[in-house]
């Protein structure tokens, strides 16, 4: 989990008696410089190639929201970023990355690339979980064709775009909330591989949740 090592910076700091440091100010200048750099880099367009062969253009900073793409770009060890733009398109070798899915993914990262980063000091999982999807995300992910929806989620998972997988997950959880197991199976086309006995046993085990408070 994220919080595990994030706080260790405080360790080893002599806490008693030291005057407060002014590092914080430098941190802010550095942060602002980084923000400007991200903005500049996003003006550089790179090409991504879907499993079906379609090529899509995407801002560099936006594309780097995919940890997989970021790692591939790092592996190139290209110091002159503008050269990245003229390179061959980056192939995404997973059958979930269809033309349609990649087009949508590029749309998503282009909208979200300047999201404020999560502060590791206050990465409150519960808070993030309860946070509702923004209006934009809701409209983005409300896709009638379930095959396409699963393509986008699976492709985002393959490309390691955490935020987009989260949007997909929240959308699916919202859709199935309050439904019966049969309805969920029908909706998501899930094959029930329990025997009736097994299913009854689980049901009995979990009976307590139906008890009145």
């Amino acid at each position: 989990m994220n919080g595990e090592y994030s706080l260790d910076t405080t360790e080893g700091m002599a806490a008693s008696g030291d005057p407060p440091t002014n590092n914080a100010v430098d941190d802010y200048d550095a942060e602002e410089a980084l923000e400007r750099q991200r903005e500049e880099e996003n003006k550089i367009k790179i090409k991504l190639k879907s499993f079906e062969g379609g090529v899509y253009e995407c801002g560099l900073t936006a594309a780097k929201m995919s940890v997989m793409v970021a790692n591939m770009l790092d592996a190139l060890q290209e110091t002159d970023l503008t050269k990245i733009a003229t390179r061959e398109p980056i192939p995404l070798q997973n059958d979930a990355v269809t033309n349609k899915a990649l087009e949508k993914i590029v749309e998503w990262v282009d909208h979200h690339w300047d999201d404020p980063p999560i502060d590791p000091d206050f990465d409150d999982e519960k808070e993030r979980r309860n946070e509702e999807l923004s209006h934009w995300d809701k409209q983005f992910i409300d896709i009638a064709d379930q095959g396409e929806l699963f393509d986008i989620i699976a492709a985002a998972n393959f490309m390691d775009i955490k935020g987009l997988v989260e949007v997909g997950a929240k959308h699916i959880c919202n859709k199935i909330k309050g439904k019966s197991c049969t309805e969920v199976r029908e909706m998501l086309k899930i094959h029930n591989d329990f025997t009736p006995e097994e299913e009854a046993a689980i049901h009995k085990e979990n009976e307590w949740i139906y008890a009145k408070d």
Partner: peptide, 21 residues
């Protein structure tokens, strides 16, 4: 991925949905 997709279910829904598959 299934684990991640079901991460946003409230606790009691998880117990209900255990027998989906």
């Amino acid at each position: 991925l299934c684990e991640v997709l079901l991460a946003y279910l409230p606790l009691k829904e998880r117990f209900r949905f255990e027998c989906v598959s």
